[in-house]
Nucleic acid binder design. Structure first.
Lengths: 332, 332
DNA sequence: CGACAATGTGAAATCGCTTCCACCTGGTGC
DNA sequence: GCACCAGGTGGAAGCGATTTCACATTGTCG
């Protein structure tokens, strides 16, 4: 069976191709009756427009890229990226933009992704913090609008949606202090990530407000293994630690395992707060107190921002900041 | 800056557009010297072909769809889908196919996705077990080749890659029996999924070989909450249960939590085997014994199968079956 | 009643590429 | 030497839509 073309639709509807196009896309004047006839013909033929032809003629790809980093986190099940994917897909579901998944590896030469993006998308959502400037700058030069999930480190005046990460750190520290912690360590993520720095800043702020000095800090990748190792090192360094602010639930899980291994009871002898409020937080024993980091919400808002720019032709949009919440459970 | 077109490249290289096209795509004869000149000109201009034009002219989209179900699993962090995404992306990274992400919700009318796929991809990887025929049949009618990750329930003669799920169940039961279990319950997934049925079959097979009768079975969605509830019900029903075959790590985690809540020591009083061998299995206390269900491997193989069909023009390919392994840890 | 908008319409020109086809070279076999 | 063939090449015809523009056809106002 040969695919029906707009010509077929026009012929059956008894109008010109131009009119048929206008009737279906609403891009120009078309009488009531013409619209009815065209729509009937299109239904009859099961017409669906050839995207390539449409893209070529209209000079818009009707597609957006979702750029995410490939850490092995996806495999290991870090829920943050899953949420980003879900959120973005949700936001674009009812538009006729297609979502093109671009997974970049730290080592990849950026030109490849750049080319791809340049030639075939109208815009992009970028969820990768780790790209150090290169890709970002190259893409910025290009006309297609870019929206970041998470404030980018190296790009000024970017459009982005982020959680208030300073507040994340502040909330965590506040909770730990309220529960009586005196010596709070921090299991932070990689040092070159803006959220990591901001959370650290918020944590320090809350501590100094309370007149406390920050405990030891360890920067490690966001995996539970690294979290466990780092926790072990911190304990050696300072066995008097009575609370831990872990910058992700995954890190927290690793820390909890080590703390339990030393005979400490988490939630009593030592307090732990994580970040992400993921499923993980509910599935461990003890359940984790965690600060929210609503990935799908962030991605949804970023997508909507991109859509707005795409549709309204606006050049830019103000960043949006989401307020984090702390969800208290057994660990702190 | 205006994008360079093939015309520009041809002009600078001093050849015709036809020759330039052939030189760049390798789709026809082109002399050494022409190729050199064209390539030099393309580099100089930073030429990258307009995908839409190429797709329109060649009647191939240079894109494949990755169809995955939206359960809230992605949000909740079921690692299986993350692995599928990673694996597929990896397989297509070095081709010039783009990956279009299509997330279908159980309730979605399939025509929408169908239209999308029909009009703008050369093929698709389908990772959704839950689609009951409708979408699948519609798509089968269409020319674009489809490869399933996981044997589909309703489509005969489909191309797919799957793990040997009967063996998964068999391995789990075997391990539990070896460790001395006498009364083995099964926490199964939704009843309409082929892997769920197959694992159940393998489990029963191993039990009957050993002369044991299967314990109680509960069918629930793949979340830890449902796992926990089901475990509670099973225990009420039969407190003598001394082992559990949970059909995913997430279910296992829920079960473990409940078992521990009753004072049982998992790994001693009661044994638990999960499936997926995900990060989760390594992060719980006790660590879970789990049967592998290598999602990214499955997706990679499925993608390669699709590529083969796409490139060779082969009509079909034989299903591939991957052997599962059991990874023994503390819980059984 | 004539003139001028406003509104719909279709012919035709793109968009940037691939690919068919006709043509022109050389080199080879007889 | 002549026919022939193979490998290169360029001209030109699409691919299937959108969009511009000129041309009706109305209705409305003075």
């Amino acid at each position: 069976m040969v695919r029906a073309t707009l010509d077929d639709v026009a012929r059956i509807a008894g109008v010109s191709r131009a009119t048929a196009s206008r009737a279906l896309t609403g891009s120009g004047p078309a009488s009531e009756s013409a619209q009815r006839k065209v729509r009937a013909a299109a239904d009859e033929l099961g017409f669906s427009p050839n995207q390539a032809a449409r893209a070529l003629a209209s000079n818009r790809a009707n597609a957006v890229a979702l750029v995410i980093p490939e850490t092995n986190l996806l495999v290991l099940g870090d829920p943050f990226l899953g949420g980003v994917i879900t959120g973005a897909s949700e936001a674009f579901r009812d538009t006729d933009y297609q979502l093109i998944l671009v997974i970049v590896r730290p080592g990849d030469e950026p030109t490849k992704a750049y080319r791809l993006l340049q030639s075939s998308v109208d815009g992009a959502i970028i969820a990768s913090h780790h790209l150090t400037g290169l890709l970002e700058l190259q893409m910025e030069r290009h006309a297609a609008p870019l929206v970041y999930v998470g404030r980018p480190l190296s790009v000024e005046s970017a459009m982005y949606v982020d959680v208030d990460n300073v507040r994340v750190g502040y909330l965590a520290a506040q909770r730990l202090l309220e529960r009586g912690a005196r010596r709070i360590a921090c299991l932070a993520g990689p040092e070159d990530m803006t959220p990591v720095r901001d959370r650290l800043a918020g944590w320090i702020e809350a501590l100094s407000e309370a007149g406390d000095a920050p405990g030891p800090v360890a920067h490690v990748p966001f995996t539970s293994q690294d979290g466990a190792e780092a926790m072990r090192r911190l304990l050696e360094q300072d066995p008097s630690i009575d609370a831990v602010f872990a910058q992700s639930d995954l890190l927290a899980v690793g820390a909890v395992r080590v703390l339990q291994g030393t005979g400490r009871v988490v939630g009593r002898d030592v307090l732990v707060v994580g970040v992400d409020d993921s499923d993980l937080a509910r599935n461990t024993v003890p359940q984790l107190t965690s600060v929210t980091n609503p990935s799908s919400e962030l991605a949804r808002r970023a997508s909507q921002m991109l859509l707005r720019v795409l549709e309204d032709g606006a050049v830019t949009a103000e960043p949006e900041i989401i307020e984090p919440q702390i969800v208290c459970r057994e660990s702190a």
